[in-house]
Design a protein around this nucleic acid. Structure first.
Lengths: 242, 242
DNA sequence: CAAGGTAATATGTCTAGACATATGAGCTGT
DNA sequence: ACAGCTCATATGTCTAGACATATTACCTTG
């Protein structure tokens, strides 16, 4: 997916090397990366060059720095400043409602051969398919159908999604670098209406999200919200084109 | 709105100064900003410091640089890399359909006193209220209801929105720095259904967007799309939090 | 006049230092 | 124990240069 530009300059190579260790998980959130003077020794360059590399990682939100202490791999952010879709649990509690979760199904399965999208997501391994219903004050808030690539996130199989919603769990465990949303409005069919406890034909907001870490596809989720009870808020600034 | 951090370091002040001239429109898209050596003379600092300031503006997409030639104020981007909502005309033609526009109404009016949002948008001046219908291959594609702040964009009053859609016109004339979207699903009421030529009660995607340039509110638009004919696509990377 | 070579120039990258500043660690005295 | 002080240290910012590179402008030659 993300075909980054080949690093040609020194600070780009340094940045790429550090970024790689973070994205592959070799350096986990909270890990202290080498000090600038260690990196200058390692790469045989001036401190400004290392500084430039790290500064761009700080800019990208992958690193946080503390004077006198060092530079650390950042905790994955719960909500992105770009698109304010925190996980649903956060969204519900932010509205002052009690969050509830009902796990409808959760099973490991093979990707369907005739679905190229699923095969790509699976990346040679199996998928974890999770269906759940999010509740706010006991009433249905969103219906979620998610596939997780076990090749990318093997730890997911051990997680208990009847306690922690898969989205919340993933946000806390896996840093992501890219996401794509597809948003549409649909009329609820009979099954959806029953699960969400709304009238058949009521407008629902459909949100599909695919998430990557580097060029590795992590998860694909389809969420359905009753239209009258949910607004997506997206706030952002224009960014340099790709 | 955007309360930027007060520039304390030199390169932040330089950046802020240049950014200001771009955002106020003093330096229009295409304008060549001073050479680095001119800025070093003006601010009495080293070239690296000026370079850092300009690099961050390049990063933000406000400046493009060409070797041997100079640095120029960037053309406002038609679509942001973050949220792929180009103007509707672009969207329609990208789908291979013929674009059409029907201006339903366009008038100058005072903001309503009991609407604090409108008063803020107007910023002491009047509003231009525009209603129009976007057509794809002659069929209704989106219904748009827009308010433009004439205090922020006085040139808008002279524009002919029966030829160019207000969104397209604004994108080409006004650089923006921040936008907020509110996305929801609603069932079409009788009037909406009639204008969009869909069944009453059909699911529609409602998109409200407010746009700022610096701390100046530019426009507020509410768009309605027939649910089955439109998907919003948002693709992005996580950014440093605010 | 057209093609090709050359010099001028603005940006791109990097260096080896400098001083400032925040902050953890350790020491000290009560 | 505890408050307060000093010191070491990693980052934050900046400098005054260097050489590289892309591109334009100009000049030369056929």
């Amino acid at each position: 997916m993300t075909d980054r530009a080949e690093p040609v300059t020194l600070h780009e190579r340094i940045r790429a090397e550090i970024e790689d260790r973070i994205l592959t998980g070799a350096w986990k959130p909270g890990h202290r990366i080498p000090y600038e003077h260690e990196l200058t020794a390692q790469f045989g360059c001036a401190r400004m060059t290392v500084n430039k590399a790290i500064a761009s990682l700080v800019d990208a939100g992958l690193i946080v720095r503390r004077r006198r202490v060092g530079s650390f791999v950042a905790q994955p952010r719960i909500h992105s400043a770009v698109l304010d879709i925190p996980d649903i649990q956060g969204e519900v509690t932010a509205r002052g409602a009690a969050y509830g979760l009902r796990l409808l199904s959760c099973r490991r399965r093979k990707p369907m051969r005739n679905q190229p999208e699923e095969l790509k997501l699976a990346g040679g391994g199996d998928l974890l398919a999770v269906c759940c219903l999010h509740l706010a004050d006991g009433r249905p808030f969103a219906l979620e159908d998610r596939q997780i690539s076990l090749a990318a996130v093997p730890e997911a199989e051990a997680a208990d999604f009847s306690v922690t919603a898969p989205g919340t769990w993933l946000l806390g465990h896996v840093p992501w670098t890219e996401a794509e949303h597809r948003i549409a409005a649909i009329n609820a069919d009979a099954e959806t209406a029953r699960l969400l406890a709304i009238a058949e034909g009521a407008a629902c907001l459909s949100l599909e999200r695919r998430t990557w870490r580097g060029d590795r596809h992590i998860t694909h989720v389809a969420q359905l919200f009753p239209g009258e009870s949910y607004d997506l808020i997206a706030r952002f600034t224009p960014r340099g084109g790709e």
